[in-house]
């Protein structure tokens, strides 16, 4: 019961990334992740490599990041600056500035994501590590194919790489997890950091309820 109308059977759950993570690190589902148009030679070249994720600077305070037309200060509590820029690049392809409705940047996605990564359940699900790991892989493939990080590629090449990623179960789950959080940034109450000035709700002609969540009465205050 989405908790619920009486017989509600919607499933708003996020994808089971724990399973994804096991697959990813097992090496077997790297093959799944890669299946599709990426050349087998890439796989062969990577087969002996373990994913290399730079986590040491994760707690470093991140500087200002330019987001389209405004500047947003990020906490840097979860992701380092490079990781944030990588996530930003992916998020802007998953939820682009295409002239109809807010983009990931308009939704203040990075700020929302960093905050969401401090949620106890999301942490225990391993989401921060999983997102970082996915970025690492994507950059590795981008470098193998094009000699550059994902964020340096043209949008056409970025989309091509994401299309390949989405064709594998594992890659699809990783993208689905980011989309899960993008949708939270789109449609949750602006109090939680996304949906700036109700930009998401206005686009969707959605009328929020009242009273809205306030400091001291957010879901985390009751946990």
């Amino acid at each position: 019961m989405k908790v619920y109308s009486l017989k509600h059977r919607k499933n708003p759950n996020k994808p089971k990334n724990c399973q994804f993570e096991q697959h990813w690190t097992s090496g077997i589902n790297r093959r799944e992740f890669m299946k599709g148009s990426l050349a087998l030679s890439v796989l062969a070249g990577l087969s002996a490599c373990k994913p290399s994720i730079e986590n040491k600077s994760a707690k470093k305070q991140v500087k200002l990041i330019r987001q389209t037309d405004r500047t947003v200060k990020l906490t840097g509590r979860v992701f380092n600056e490079k990781q944030l820029l990588d996530i930003q690049a992916v998020s802007m392809r998953l939820f682009p500035d295409d002239g109809d409705g807010p983009s990931a940047d308009d939704l203040n996605f990075l700020t929302y994501l960093e905050w969401a990564m401090t949620d106890e359940q999301n942490m225990s699900d391993g989401d921060p590590e999983f997102i970082v790991k996915g970025i690492g892989w994507l950059n590795q493939f981008a470098n193998d194919d094009y000699g550059k990080d994902f964020k340096e590629l043209s949008v056409q090449k970025q989309d091509k790489l994401l299309s390949t990623t989405a064709r594998s179960d594992a890659g699809e789950r990783w993208m689905a997890l980011l989309i899960y959080y993008l949708i939270e940034a789109l449609a949750l109450d602006p109090f939680y950091g996304g949906n700036t000035d109700q930009v998401g709700w206005k686009w969707l002609k959605h009328q929020g309820g009242f009273p809205n969540p306030i400091a001291g009465k957010t879901y985390r205050d009751f946990e």
Binding site: K10, F95, P96, D100, Y180, L188
Partner: peptide, 27 residues
């Protein structure tokens, strides 16, 4: 009426015939 749940409702648009959609199609 179902209780409004815009986030859950929007999440239902993530898939077309079981395949994840993203980008402009998702929007």
């Amino acid at each position: 009426f179902d209780p409004p749940s815009p986030t859950s409702d929007a999440s239902e648009s993530r898939y077309n015939d079981g395949d994840l959609v993203w980008g402009t199609q998702l929007k």
